[in-house]
Amino acid sequence: MELQIQNLKKEYGTKQALKGVSATLTEGIYGLLGPNGAGKSTMMNILTGNLRQSAGDVLLDGTDIRTLDSAYFARLGYMPQQQTYYPTFTVEQFLYYIGSLRGMKRQKVKKRIDWALELLSLSDVRKKQLRALSGGMRQRILLAQAILADPDILILDEPTAGLDPEQRIAVRNLIAEIALHKIVLISTHVVSDVELIARELLLLSDGRLLCQSAPKELMAQLSNCVWEVCVPEHEIRKLHHLGQISGIAKAEDGAVVRLLAKEKPPYSCTEARPTLEDVYLYHFGRQEGL
């Protein structure tokens, strides 16, 4: 299974949201990273059929998804970022409704609902109205509806937003578990969510794809660029001129500053192991005003 994005462009009047994005996704988890306004939502909306591209193609196994139409949607699961639901529906009713939207048989839906609710620890609330649930529960229900039909392609927009750390880990593991034979594209700002599970990351900036690489490769690119600098507190501001500060911790004789810089800073410092947050900051920090 292969999802090819070819020279995808999208224009809103004179503004170009996507300026020719090309990528190839095969089975596995992909993280889509980028600052606000980079074009992530536009790209996801095109992939989910909620928006038409101005130019370019999206091909599933060589066939344009516009040609495939319902055959494509039958293989697609989508979890939107905004909490979309019918407030008066019960959890069970909502999932049965999604099953009917996907044209599933009643018995299959029943089995899948039991499975999804069990997996997401929602069995206790299956008969509660959606408006009576907490934000975190609704978030998990949206994930449940996305995986209900066992889709081949799963597109998740900020799937862990609003979840507590325990739920976040559980959801992350769940995604990793169900994604073995699927294409999973996760858009997120929480880089730790994809750090451990993503096969590749797509870094999107200003409507362009900066790179598509494995997290380890991206982190390797930053070797000799991440430093932990020990400085007195009044010297911290001077470090801004040397590179990007990704963290500050208090130390006995001042502060330990984590600094991204191509050259070794002229202070007492040690080289640190790059993380995916460093990668994010390295590529997008300036754009986000950091």
Binding site: T48, N50, P80, Q82
Partner: peptide, 12 residues
């Protein structure tokens, strides 16, 4: 309720 998005992606 923003359900338009889910209706579209489900192709229904």
């Amino acid at each position: 309720r923003g359900m338009e998005i889910i209706l579209t992606t489900s192709g229904a």
